[in-house]
Nucleic acid binder design. Structure first.
Lengths: 222, 222
DNA sequence: CGGTTTTCGTTACAAATTGTCATAAAGTCT
DNA sequence: AGACTTTATGACAATTTGTAACGAAAACCG
């Protein structure tokens, strides 16, 4: 079931039935991430995970039946990157996988290397990551709340790239979002009201239906 | 039957009756993609596939009789790029082949490397991939919805090339489309209404009966 | 601490977008 | 021309997004 879902989502998926098979796959296919159930038939999942972590930097996400905090701690302690308890929903698992991948491949997703003064300029506006402030083209400071600032920064650091809501949530708050969460939408609306001249026809932050938002301002750093 | 069909579609097709013959062909002809039935007479299809994958990056699509999820998993697990269960229809197989080819040869089909400003100009219009906006010859912005923009971009990035509906669907939404899906047609109609002066006699996006659509505007990038 | 003020998540409803369907129109073939 | 396919397009329903409003939580402030 998992295999099917993630294949459809565009991932390349392999499965292994045993620790040996897993090790074999790792050598051959060099996966980016390993998803494993703690409860393995006839094998110690924890030991296996510890083992893999000892030999590789691959991302590891543990799945477990018991939702004990103990398990969580133990799981993370041995070096798993994240942990999810059954029953879980696929979207949440997917979100966590994306998060781990993002953390693992900094170049793929990271904000531009922070050089100079960490100043992001677009269409006359200046956003300073250091000072956590935004100035409009006339040089006046536009007061942003913490959440608005984080959101704008997350978007403006990745101009031209569509970012889905889960990722935005993760980027601005750390943890994933619930199923029918409109938090990001609301925050985008508030932010637009402050920085767009015509919030109904936004030019800086555009929506991409079914996905998320993009920052479409012309960015130059300085 | 397959050979006939794909030859007619303009592909170069070779067939092999055995694993040895396949290996031989691979050396001589360096195919882009291998289509193989899991059920081979007197040979282990899985092992053969694994073997090929070990030596080459060729695209592999597995065909199998049983539609078990198990098979699917096993097929993808050994590194096949896609999988299709009998009975399948040719159009679907063709769509999957195109998808795999597209994935494998990024340069053949990918949007131009994003340089400069990623601006596509045609007949006075300017389409900016970065800003996700379109401006008419007079410089006025023409508001496009997400779907319209994605469609126009997909077409305009490949001027003069006929693109079939499956590919368009794949290009604009990621996953394939159902059999009698008029989605693309509807979207094309909506797009034409916004950018063609005479939507009934389109000059920018033309239909190609039995296939799909072409972008026929004179394109220059800048 | 208690009282204020902000901020933000949630909800509800409006607006926009898009898939689907039905029907008309156009194209193809004999 | 007639029969049959394929495409165009308006209408409509389902989905997704925008945004105001409300109240809980957090931050602030003596």
């Amino acid at each position: 079931m998992l295999s099917r879902y993630f294949t459809d989502e565009g991932y390349r998926v392999s499965t292994a039935e045993s620790g040996d098979e897993l090790r074999d796959r790792m050598r051959r296919e060099e996966p980016d991430i390993v998803l494993m159930d703690l409860m393995l038939p006839g094998e110690d999942g924890l030991q296996l995970a510890r083992d893999i972590r000892a030999h590789s930097d691959v991302g590891i996400i543990m799945i477990t039946g018991r939702s004990d905090v103990v398990d969580r701690i133990v799981g993370l302690e041995i070096g798993a990157d994240d942990y999810i308890a059954k029953p879980f929903n696929l979207r949440e698992l997917h979100a966590r996988i994306k998060t781990v991948l993002r953390r693992l491949r900094p170049n793929h997703d990271a904000p531009e290397p922070k050089q100079a003064e960490n100043l992001i300029c677009f269409e006359g506006w200046r956003l300073s990551a250091e000072r956590r402030e935004l100035r409009d083209p006339a040089g006046r400071e536009v007061p942003l709340t913490t959440g608005e600032f984080d959101l704008l920064l997350a978007l403006a650091q990745r101009p031209g790239r569509v970012i889905d809501r889960d990722t935005l949530m993760d980027l601005t708050r750390g943890r994933g979002r619930e199923a029918f969460d409109r938090t990001i939408d609301a925050q985008v609306a508030r932010l637009r009201k402050k920085i767009e001249t015509a919030p109904h026809k936004p030019t800086l932050i555009k929506s991409v239906r079914g996905v998320g938002y993009v920052f479409t301002g012309q960015v130059s750093r300085g």
